[in-house]
Nucleic acid binder design. Structure first.
Lengths: 350, 350
DNA sequence: TCAAAATAAGCACACGTGTGCATATAGATC
DNA sequence: GATCTATATGCACACGTGTGCTTATTTTGA
């Protein structure tokens, strides 16, 4: 780069037809070709600006020749809007988290925002990665990873970046929150087990540091207590199919096997279902009733047909988008909290 | 340590993020507080710049108080690097495409790039959405959607945006390409069917406009011809589980049922498997052998244990990243093409 | 003690765009 | 003809940063 400057000390006088391929064309280039001022070029791409038709077409032709498009980043530089919206995802190896992210990405695309995804396929995103993206002037930050610390969220707010936390309720600053009513969901599931007379009910949860898990396990315990029932199993896995499979290998081969198991998400429920049917040859739901959480696409597959608590993706993404839009409209408004209502989806495993 | 008001954040006291002046702190603000020039602030955050230790610590303290971080977008404005890398994904409802995108996102995060995802969960991304993101000065554009036109790719190149096409070979400009050797993969699968003496072999493909599908169906036809075999079934679906399930409902209930079916991807193969076993009660692989393509995670689940052709995600993402890095190092180099070698994964459905 | 070298710090520019303000031209109204 | 309005165009600034160039200060070397 320095050698380039030495060879060509006056870049503005460089032959544009020789090295025009080196850099993106600017409004200045178009102005030179079209024989107008740079301002006119800017106006040619601004709806409703005063510009004679003749000039406008001349400029647009020149722009077409040079392959010019206004640099949106430079434009947003003034208006203090980058259109960048960062999404800190949960584990992208998880079907549910992955699909929520995908839907949100699609919606943001439609809104003319650039969704910048921060995520992992192995574990959850660390706080340092969140801080790194804050070097950029984000229009907003959507946090779905349940592991991000409240302290990190405060740093975002200090940088004047609106934060929306999804999947957990956070009481920091003007943060918008959105979360499934996990407790209500677990209550529904336990009620179903109780209705069909299941007595030996167990629970298989996920990572205890994730707030969704904390709410769900607490909801399960509360629902059991309400009915004077004692959990037969309180196990933990990692929210994955393999984790559920491995956990089932333990608690389904114990002496006092549960006859109903409530899982913290569908992936683990499918792991349990698979081990119970294929490996142990159990009858589901005869010997063992299973209820999951989320209602991922796989739960609907005929080979599984898993009863579950739906954590509706469309309502979640709708909520996030509406929070975003109202935040853009009024950056100083108080933080809102939206609770998403879960729904029991009866299928054939309970 | 010297800042007495920030080290004691009392929640009931004045919250700095509320009244901190509506805008992100700039180097100018820090300079004013620290009593130095703006240049000094810039140097305080530049490794190896001449700056006395005393000033450096003073500036960093002031920055800490104001919650200042250098605006990476403004900085990149000069160096002509935005660190934005757009990823045009395939259908994000597809497990394979979704996971490739996720892995790529994770890798780009590690490289300090901002992955901007353009994608849908219903169909494939349209060309207009690709053109929209070109308003931004991208460091690179990774195209995985098989539906993007070559003409659109040319427009990217005119804007000096390096393009990497994954999943298809494109012979336009200095474009880097990366694609699984689909033909070799199909040859492996047909060879397996032939080895075990299957005679009535069928094929279930996906959207015919996707180039991956074109290569795979052509590969299948070529492999059959080579062995003087005539396909019993040539069907199409939409690369989804439901599509495979519905297609199986047709060709598995015909009079001359195939005894081996090769599918364009794993999702459809699982749909076929499910219909064959659950609905028709067929023995797989006794009555019907099934081989898929991709080797998604589900294929490994014990309840499926699907034989398939692995389209390795790690090698694919490694390849994309290496193409990206060498392109950053030498923007003018000729386009490269990388072929990813598939691998037959024998499991229990063939 | 003096020159040369090393360090420290600031001014001013470049990056690409939109837009407020001022100015110029043409047409219309009185 | 004079005044007013609508249209048309350009100048200059702001946005936030890194850095080349210049100048001031300190340290080193003989």
């Amino acid at each position: 780069m320095s050698s380039e400057n030495e060879l060509n000390p006056n870049p503005t006088c460089a032959k544009p037809w020789v090295d025009a391929g080196r850099k993106r064309a600017t409004a200045e280039d178009v102005a030179r070709i079209a024989g107008v001022s740079r301002t006119a070029v800017s106006r040619a791409f601004t709806e409703g600006a005063y510009l004679s038709l003749e000039k406008r077409t001349r400029i647009r032709n020149a722009a077409e020749i040079l392959g010019y498009r206004p640099n949106a980043l430079a434009a947003g530089f003034n208006s203090n809007r980058s259109n960048l919206v960062a999404i800190v995802t949960g584990n992208l190896n998880n079907h549910y988290d992955s699909l929520v992210t995908a839907e949100l990405v699609a919606r943001l695309n439609g809104l003319g925002k650039l969704p910048v995804v921060i995520g992992r396929t192995t574990d959850n995103v660390g706080d340092s990665e969140v801080l790194e993206v804050l070097d950029y002037p984000l229009d907003a930050l959507v946090i779905r990873a349940g592991s991000v610390k409240a302290e990190t969220v405060e740093k975002c707010l200090r940088l004047q970046v609106p934060v929306i936390v999804s999947g957990r309720i956070l009481t920091v600053g003007n943060v918008d929150c959105l979360c499934c009513d996990n407790q209500a969901g677990m209550e529904m599931a336990v009620a179903e087990f109780a209705r069909s007379g299941r007595q030996r009910i167990g629970y298989l949860g996920g990572h205890p540091e994730l707030s969704a898990e904390q709410e769900r396990s607490a909801g399960f315990v509360a629902a059991m207590k309400k009915r004077h029932l004692e959990p037969v199993v309180m196990e933990r896995a990692d929210f994955s199919f393999e984790g559920g499979y491995a956990a089932a290998a333990k608690f389904l081969q114990a002496l006092d096997r549960p006859n109903a198991i409530l899982c913290g998400n569908d992936a683990m429920a499918l792991g349990v279902l698979n081990f119970a049917r294929e490996t142990l040859g159990l009858d589901v739901p005869g010997d063992l009733a299973i209820i999951g959480f989320d209602d991922i696409e796989l739960a609907r597959w005929p080979c599984f047909d898993l009863s579950t608590i739906r954590n509706p993706i469309d309502a979640t993404v709708d909520g996030i988008v509406s929070l975003l839009e109202s935040r853009f409209a009024d950056p100083a408004r108080h933080g809102k909290t939206i609770r998403i209502a879960p729904e029991f989806i009866p299928r054939s495993t309970h």
